[in-house]
């Protein structure tokens, strides 16, 4: 997991970087809140461990910025601080921190709290996916109903047309009638294809999104109906 550390004290910053890297995380560091805020915006990280007291922008201000400016972005924040009075904890939580670690910190506690944060992020990510999937499924069911009803008319009438043409051409084989029967048959086949697509969409439970380039730096996002489950 990518973790951003905002800490002005060199020793603490190095210790955090070394420890978290050893645990397999990809660590980025900032020397103050302002730098962390800039990195967060450009690199879009989801896990921040920040000190409280820092020059330029402190940890409380950083928390507030993240919560106010990044409403759509999942960010888990652990506030690292020597302040551990109740009022300080309330202040930090209200600013938007998810958890606290008191300085000097214990490595096992740090590991446990990072793991807890990871679990929360995983749950939030899964929740977003489930909500998205539910939206897709609701859209698909609506589509299925709204498309299948007019398809009944298109497909059924084309079939009736075919039957009428076949009946009228009995005995006499006109090439015009044969052409018309073939066209009506094509309408039936295309209607069946539309119906199959709608059916496939409705049964999606693990949609795979495919990106189709449509120009420089532009791509259309589509559900890959063949690759999805």
């Amino acid at each position: 997991m990518k973790i951003l550390i905002a800490e002005d004290e060199l020793v603490s910053r190095k210790l955090l970087t070394k420890t978290l890297s050893q645990w397999g995380h990809e660590v980025s560091t900032a020397c103050d809140g302002q730098e962390a805020w800039e990195m967060l915006q450009s690199e879009g990280m989801h896990f921040v461990i920040t000190d409280w007291m820092m020059p330029r922008m402190d940890g409380i201000e950083l928390c507030k910025q993240i919560r106010h400016q990044c409403e759509d972005q999942l960010v888990y924040i652990i506030l690292l601080t020597a302040k551990n009075r109740k009022e300080d904890i309330v202040l930090g939580m209200e600013a938007g921190a998810d958890d606290f670690i008191s300085k000097p910190f214990d490595l096992n506690e740090l590991l446990a709290r990072v793991r807890a944060g990871e679990r929360v992020l995983e749950l939030e990510t899964r929740l977003i996916e489930v909500t998205k999937l539910k939206g897709i499924q609701q859209t698909s069911v609506t589509l299925q109903h709204e498309i299948n009803n007019p398809l009944v008319g298109i497909m059924g009438n084309a079939e009736l047309l075919m039957m009428a043409l076949k009946k009228s051409s009995q005995g006499a084989s006109s090439s015009d009638t044969a052409k018309m029967i073939a066209l009506a048959d094509e309408i039936v086949q295309m209607s069946e294809r539309i119906s199959a697509v709608v059916e496939k969409l409705r049964n999606l439970y693990q949609p795979v999104v495919a990106h189709h380039p449509v120009g420089d730096n532009l791509s259309a996002e589509m559900i890959d109906l063949h690759g999805s489950k």
Partner: peptide, 8 residues
């Protein structure tokens, strides 16, 4: 029968 059904 599911819509769209075949007349057949």
């Amino acid at each position: 029968l599911e819509k769209p059904f075949k007349i057949e």
